[in-house]
Design a protein around this nucleic acid. Sequence first.
RNA 1: GCCAAAAUGGCGGAACUGGUAGACGCGCUGGACUCAAAAUCCAGUGAGUGAAUAACUCGUGUGGGUUCGAGUCCCACUUUUGGUACCA
Length: 809
Amino acid sequence: MKYEFSDIERKWQTYWQEQQTFATESSSDKPKYYVLDMFPYPSGSGLHVGHLEGYTASDIIARYKRSCGFNVLHPMGWDAFGLPAEQFAIKTGTHPKETTEQNIKSFKETLQRMGFSYDWSREINTTDPRYFKWTQWIFLQLYDRGLAYMSEVDVNWCEELKTVLANEEVEEKIADGYTVVRRPLRQWVLKITAYAERLLADLDELDWPENVKQMQRNWIGRSVGMEIDFELRCHNRRLKVYTTRPDTLFGATYLVISPEHELAEKLATAQQLVEVKNYIRQAKLKTELERTGLQKEKTGVFTGSYAINPATGEPLPVWISDFVLTSYGTGAIMSVPAHDQRDWEFARQYNLPIIEVIKSPHDVQEKVFEGKDSCCVNSSNPEISLNQLPFSEAFERMASWLESKKIGERKVNYKLRDWIFSRQRYWGEPIPIKHYLDGTIRTETTLPLMLPEVEAYHPSSTGESPLANIPHWLYGEDEDGPFRRETNTMPQWAGSCWYYLRFIDPTNQERLIDPEKERYWMNIDLYIGGAEHAVLHLLYARFWHKVLYDIGVVTTKEPFQKLFNQGMILGEDNEKMSKSRGNVIPADQVMERYGADAVRLYEMFLGPLEQVKPWNTNGIEGISRFLTKVWRVVYPGSDRDELTPAVALSGEPMPEELERRMHKTIKKVSQDTQNLKFNTAISEMMVFVNELHKAGCRNREAVETLLLLLAAYAPHLTEELWEAIGHGHSITKEPFPSFDPKLVEDPVLTITVQVNGKLRGTFSAPAGSPKEALLEEARKVESVIKFLEGKTIMREIVVADKLVNFAVK
RNA sequence: GCCAAAAUGGCGGAACUGGUAGACGCGCUGGACUCAAAAUCCAGUGAGUGAAUAACUCGUGUGGGUUCGAGUCCCACUUUUGGUACCA
């Protein structure tokens, strides 16, 4: 009988669907396990083999955990708001809803064809009003707590897309060939900075890849420093700067403010005014990228004004330069050119003095010294001296001194900025806010606030969304008077910020999630997805989760206890898969040819899950052969002389060697599966199958064990064979096999013999042989003798059960 | 520039807390089966010297070091990938 994967796979997929095999148990005494994939945006180009890597991994874990007695939640849904569907609508007039529905259908077919054990009764879709009702509800919670506010902000405006982009999206769009400029616009902003400290601190407890945690830490960018007030000469004002190095105050030789600083023009003396105005105007014309991108020569202009260095009493020229960022710290800095690269470059450019205040190994006039592990010098006045002090003590002493003089205070700063949350698009969650004539705003009382039908999807030319063109939706009146609706919609991140909660209670009309269910299922035991979401999605979702925690909707501080990033699968040319390169391997195509089980196995066999690795279509042949070999364990013969498998698998005993191999395999597959080392688990199963064939053994226990081990990996094939050998129920209901610890240890071991660390021979010895016996045996090994002859043995090293090494001279 | 990870045959990759480097698979070579092919099966396959299934030498990015013994630990460097980019 031949292994016809397409019939078999269809048969069992239908069976699972009919039997509701993977429906999550709603109430259960079992321990729970929540394994989640980052849900996809259903694009028009379908799924390729790279998309299926993470899903395959999570599915193996889900099936494995079920067989270990867990009640498993393994859901799937669609992050379906987003630009591509809208752009397609602009081009063709097709409603994004239609496009989205079609794409979802095709995605779902592919996923089902892979035999993934999702509980499809929990499927969610972020564009479904029953879902985005709660996205809007969360927005209102944020608004009520002052965490959502409107602000006229310089935004990244993309002319071609007629929309605002988040800082994080800018680079990506520029890479795609769009132009992005700075432009002030009224925007909704979420105050993620209010949670910066907690977002940083709580990272420590998460079981996440260290690099992802580090990326988030860098993104949050906490720094400890001081704000210091500098008195301005000839002005009755002070200038506040932020610095992390108050210990270098004695070395500050000038100040720099950003071109947007409120004092920039005011500080300009009559003589300098024209030049200053010119510089400020030019800075405004530059885009963010031109200003901050790439290292370039520093530019600046002198205001003509001076401030006083509170430590030295010396006058400090105040300069304006666009290398100082407006939006960080106070938009003004004190420059210590001897000990800061940027300040040093600027000082050299404009001939400003460079004074060494940290003991440097070289002349600071020639090269900057930024080290912190050296002591202060040239740093004293009648009131305070930092000389000889190392960094932290100098910092402390200077901080106290400035505090006592009331011209400085300690300050913690973050790189993290508030999150610009609005988009001028149609295909997103409408922001449920009403604007009244008097300028007040109120929240919508009935949710969801639906998206109206529109004629055209083009944004309005004013930069408002297409919603601004729909008068009957836009304007309304209630007891508070006439109002105009908010026309901005939410960014795509919104829906994915909380979807993992909705899977737990997907149809609840009354609340976002039932508290009892939340307590049972949260938090997520394993979250698998791509590293491209290391910062944005994962940071935004953590932020929302913490807000929901604060208002009592959830009971865990963090949503994703364990995170795993699967490595990208590259095309066969070792490049990232993309339509333009023409190296995309569509999932359906490979399944057609080799079957879902082979694709599943091969995805995992390619290499370590976390690693970036190229696809190689030839390699899947090996997996195909392996599956055929498994098939032939049960159906060994050709069509004619076939015994029915149930009869063929009689109680023929297993050779001891094979039995040990079986127990070793159980152990290895079990451990490797838990640790997501699927490539080595598969390799171990291959070894076992090869041994089975070599031994020609048809022992029932051996065959059943093999099928049970393989069930999570190749679910269709194992279901079919499980049935063929006489079982009346699904293999998914069987527990994972256990091994006998006594049988995984070999009674006779190969001992290595080395002379001076080089391999010279081996011999066999029973496990646990005493050292003396091993030494004696080792000396007798023929290939070793000649290396010992005529030499003096200086030392004999014996490692029990492993090796003997003679150090000779 | 800074931060993080990595570098092993022709290729993807194995190697437990330092203990036989190259498991498993691809590819390749030879053989069996076949009229022939496909499929399947068997054998071989890191490099070098060698008639050799004898024996030895070299070999895990480079150079040092620790150790009886290093792919694994330490130092320096090179390259690749990811992140970040004037955050004071």
